[in-house]
Design a binder for these strands. Structure first.
Length: 916
RNA sequence: GCGGAUAUGGCGUAAUUGGUAGCCGCGCCAGACUUAGGAUCUGGUGUCUUGCGACGUGGGGGUUCGAGUCCCUUUAUCCGCACCA
């Protein structure tokens, strides 16, 4: 009987849904396991064949865990707020809610065809008010919290106020934007607005004016992880730096915990490394330099305090607050000209011109605190306003940027570390002996750093300091399709909505572009007010909704809490998270922050959200080409194209199979090719190919629906796994899917005898048992280690070895093994075998070690490392006995020319090596 | 520039973690059944060589009885960060 996959798959999809086979709930009697996929943004283009890769892997793992007796939570939902829907709305006037809804149904339809074991009763959408209510709720909590550095924990803002009332900033160690210092009296003397202004400096969600990434193309600000190479990640529009007042989340308060927490996570080293670099911890010193003739001091940060004797100038960022103060009358014109010039340069140009040094002398001098020398202070945009203090001490001898600057402006270059040649380039050494450095002379760089740090603190020139590259997250977007802020403004002060007013729902508007005076679209809503006060018109960024969604899945319909204590204590956190590495510096940082914050509040019981994380590789496109003979409508096959002048044209990969073009389909593809003629090789037209990004314009997008239609979901699932290691990026190549499909068909046929379903109850032979148990062990080991590609191979090997076996004793366990990979066919066979219930609830077979043990072994015998022959010997011989057998073997005499071997190396069960 | 990863037949890949390199699949070749099939089954298929055999895991060197695997060095590709002081 033929393997009629279409009917089988449809039948089981329906059955699973009707019987709620994948519904789960809290069950203290069973161990839990939480498997999560990164939920998709439902884009208009629908799913392509690359999207399900991670979902298939996580589904296999979920089903496996379930067969192993775990209560598996495996939910799915949609990250439904976002820019593309809104951009589309601006163009077409269609409400984003409408298009999003349409896209979601399309996604659901596509996902349903793939046989996932999602518990859809737990579906969530970030744009659902019942969901984003809890995003807003968390934001209010952040607004009302600060971060105590001593306790390393978020604390209620009231505690901070109490502290101010009692002792001002005295003894305060709370994360803040700019250091503040005032007494209790001064605090009490402040009016409400001043107090609020002060508190903003400490709140975990706060408003501040700083330089932000403004994207005119999108009409909104963006967080650092949303900008790449000076362009917006979404849309690729230019981004500029602009001072604006925006909402921020004080992620930096958690920098140390975000860094330390990585150590205990089962994440790939490369992903951890990306996060470590993004957090960018560096140890060094904060130091103050006197400004000649002034009371103010210039504060800098350096990781190399040891090089202080090599400092020959100072540089401050163009945006530094001291620039007006430092600029003398004679230099005013030059400085202003430079400021003008840097302002005009876009972020992109600035990045592109990193090698060109530019700057201006301010006219002021700073004093080197160690040797009292006066050194000039410059401004230059190679110093960033946003990092450290926006000012540096420049050591041209040992820093390439400082060196280039010094060369350009003719400033002294004084070496302080021995061994480099500084005439042509700086000597950026991190070790070596100190010279020209007073008390540090002769010390190694490492010792010198320690010595200098002591000296700095002893003399009160500054102190040890840790700096982070991580910035606070810009949290507002001047857009419509996002979570509204639970914030209103009264007397110029931001206030949070009372909790009972949440969710604050998005108002209906019909024009999604900014207002004529540049206000965000929400300003168009007629009644965007609370208590007669204006509500915040910005909305939250994309990462807001995805930062705690894994918690909501635990208890998705709870209207009294984000997640109940009971559900949270049971499901705890995500045991396995599968998703793309592109979220390394965005979502995966923010949700860790969000979770830690909720942990501090006692709302959740785990400090880290995702215990183990697997990054599936990206699926690239594999394009096909035809070769048109120049100036004709003739197409020459790939192998013959060298004889012609040809033009390479992308051809739809869906009308190509194994690089062989379907000629009729090609003629029908586009009118211009209707009369195409072909120059064939061996009667076929062979296409060329290349690996490219999967995109419509390259005609290399493969839709999973078409594969499911042609081969079935089970084949697609297994083939995607068979393609290669899960974590590796690879092109989608449909060549070879036949092999997997053939496997399923062959397997199917084993269960039938002359077209009728029939299994033999004969006992299995030792050889069959050996194959079976080998496979059980292999599949189990492979799933545990996410080597799904090799497990698919193992199934095929198993089938090759079994031949025409149709014994229940062998095939029944095999069906269970197969169930995670190809659930539909497994379910069908399970039913036909007369088994009770769903194969989902079967027990994973245990392998029996006795069948894996060999009784003899063909020892490869090599002479001086070269394999010469194989010697079959029974297992269990001692090394000495094996050596005896080798000496006695006539072959040995042949390869040693009759001489005694010098040495015989025996690795029992592996190899024998004879050294002659 | 800094950090991370990868490199194996015509192609995707595998290798018990230092022990017979190339499992499994695609493709290709041959055959069987058949005769419009892009179906099914069987066998073969790293390179060179008529053969014996030699060579072979990006290149070069090393450790070892033995290296795809470990060490040094180098090249190429991909990813992340990027004037981060």
């Amino acid at each position: 009987m033929e393997y009629y996959f279409r009917e089988i798959e449809q039948k089981w999809r329906q059955r699973w849904a009707e019987n709620g086979v994948y519904k789960v709930g809290v069950d203290p009697a069973r161990p839990k396991f939480y498997v999560l996929d990164m939920f998709p943004y439902p884009s208009g283009a629908g799913l392509h064949v690359g999207h399900p890769l991670g979902y298939i892997a996580s589904d296999i793992y979920s089903r496996y865990k379930r067969l192993r007796g775990f209560n598996v939570l495996h939910p799915m939902g949609y990250d439904a707020f976002g820019l593309p829907a809104e951009q589309y709305a601006i163009q077409t006037g269609q409400h984003p809610a409408v298009t999003t809804e349409q896209n979601i149904s399309r996604y659901r339809e596509q996902l349903d065809k793939l046989g996932f074991s999602f518990d859809w009763s737990r579906e969530i959408r970030t744009c659902d008010p019942e969901y984003y209510r809890w995003t807003q709720w968390a934001f209010v909590k952040m607004f009302n919290s600060c971060y105590c550095n001593d306790a390393q924990q978020a604390r209620p803002i009231e505690e901070l106020v109490e502290h101010f009332e009692a002792q001002g900033t005295e003894g305060l160690n709370v994360a803040c934007g700019v250091p503040a210092s005032f007494t209790a009296e001064e605090w009490r003397a402040m009016d409400e607005a001043a107090k609020e202004g002060t508190l903003q400096n400490f709140r975990l969600a706060y408003r501040a004016e700083t330089l932000v990434n403004w994207c005119p193309g999108l009409g909104t600000v963006l967080a650092n992880d949303e900008v790449k190479d000076g362009l917006s990640v979404r849309g690729g529009f230019a981004v500029e730096q602009r001072p604006m007042t925006q909402w921020f989340i004080r992620v930096t308060a958690y920098a140390e915990r975000l860094l330390a927490g990585l150590d205990n996570l089962e994440w790939s080293d490369s992903l951890k490394e990306i996060q470590r670099n993004w957090i960018g911890r560096s140890e060094g010193a904060q130091m103050f330099f006197d400004i000649a003739g002034r009371d103010e001091k210039l504060e800098i940060f350096t990781t190399r305090p040891d090089t202080i004797f090599g400092v020959t100038f100072m540089v401050v960022a163009p945006e530094h607050e001291y620039v007006p103060l430092l600029t003398t009358e004679q230099n005013r014109e030059a400085v202003e000209q430079y400021l003008e010039q840097t302002k005009k340069r876009s972020e992109r140009e600035r990045i592109a011109e990193t090698k060109r040094m530019s700057g201006a002398f301010t006219g002021s001098y700073a004093v080197n605190p160690l040797n009292g020398k006066e050194i000039p202070v410059y401004i230059s945009d190679y110093v960033l306003a946003g990092y450290g203090t926006g000012a540096i001490m420049a050591v041209p001898a040992h820093d390439s940027r400082d060196w280039a600057f010094a060369r350009h402006f003719g400033i002294d270059i004084i070496p302080v570390v021995e061994g480099g040649d500084i005439s042509e380039a700086s000597y950026d050494a991190k070790s070596g002996r100190m010279i020209n450095s007073g008390f540090m002379d002769g010390l190694d760089v490492k010792q010198a750093i320690a010595a200098m740090l002591d000296e700095v603190e002893r003399r009160g020139l500054g102190r040890r300091q840790v700096n982070y590259r991580l910035r606070d997250a810009i949290f507002s977007r001047q857009r419509y399709w996002g979570e509204p802020f639970p914030i209103y403004y009264k007397e110029g002060m931001a206030r949070t909505l009372p909790e009972e007013r949440l969710p604050l729902e998005l108002p209906a508007i019909d024009d999604f572009s900014p207002t004529s005076d540049g206000e965000p679209p929400l300003a168009r809503a007629g009644d965007w007010r609370f208590d007669d006060c204006l509500l915040e018109t910005g909305t939250m960024p994309g990462f807001a909704g995805s930062s705690a969604y894994y918690l909501r899945y635990m208890d998705p319909r709870n209207d009294g809490a984000l997640v109940s204590r009971e559900a949270n204590r049971y499901w705890r956190n995500v045991d396995l998270y599968v998703g793309g590495i592109e979220h390394a510096t965005g979502h995966l940082i923010y949700s860790r922050f969000w979770n830690k914050f909720l942990f501090d509040l006692g709302e959740v019981c785990e400090d880290e959200p995702f215990r183990k994380l697997v990054n599936q590789g990206m699926i690239q496109g594999r394009s096909n080409f035809v070769y048109r003979v120049a100036g004709t409508n003739k197409f020459v096959s790939f192998g013959l194209r060298d004889g012609y002048r040809t033009q390479e044209i992308h051809v739809d990969v869906n009308i190509v199979s194994n690089d062989r073009l379907d000629l009729d389909a090609f003629r029908a593809w586009r009118p211009e090719f209707a009369d195409a003629e072909f120059i064939l090789e061996d009667g076929r037209y062979i296409c060329g190919w290349a690996v490219e990004k999967m995109s419509k314009s390259m005609f290399n997008v493969v839709n999973p629906d078409s594969i499911v239609e042609r081969y079935g979901a089970d084949t697609l699932r297994m083939y995607e796994m068979f393609l290669g290691p899960l974590e590796q990026s690879k092109p989608w190549d449909t060549n070879g899917i036949d092999g997997v499909h053939k496997f399923l068909r062959r397997l199917w046929r084993l269960f039938f005898v002359s077209d009728g379903f029939a299994l033999s109850d004969e006992p299995a032979t030792p050889a069959e048992l050996k194959t079976l148990h080998k496979t059980i062990k292999k599949i189990g080991d492979d799933i545990e280690s996410f080597s799904f590609n090799t497990s698919v191979s193992a199934f095929m090997i198993c089938l090759n070895e079994l031949g025409a076996c149709n014994k229940r004793a062998v095939l029944r366990p095999l069906v269970v093994l197969l169930a995670p990979f190809a659930p539909h066919i497994a379910e069908e066979l399970w039913e036909r075998m007369g088994e009770d219930g769903s194969v989902c609830d079967a027990r994973w077979p245990e392998y029996d070690g006795q069948y894996l043990v060999e009784d003899s072994f063909d020892y490869p015998v090599s002479f001086n490392g070269k394999l010469r022959f194989k010697l079959p010997l029974p297992l269990g011989l001692s090394a000495a006995e094996i050596e005896q057998a080798v000496r006695a073997d006539p072959n040995t005499a042949r390869y040693t020319d009759g001489r005694e071997p010098k040495k015989i190396v025996v690795v029992p069960g592996k190899i024998i090596n004879v050294v002659v």
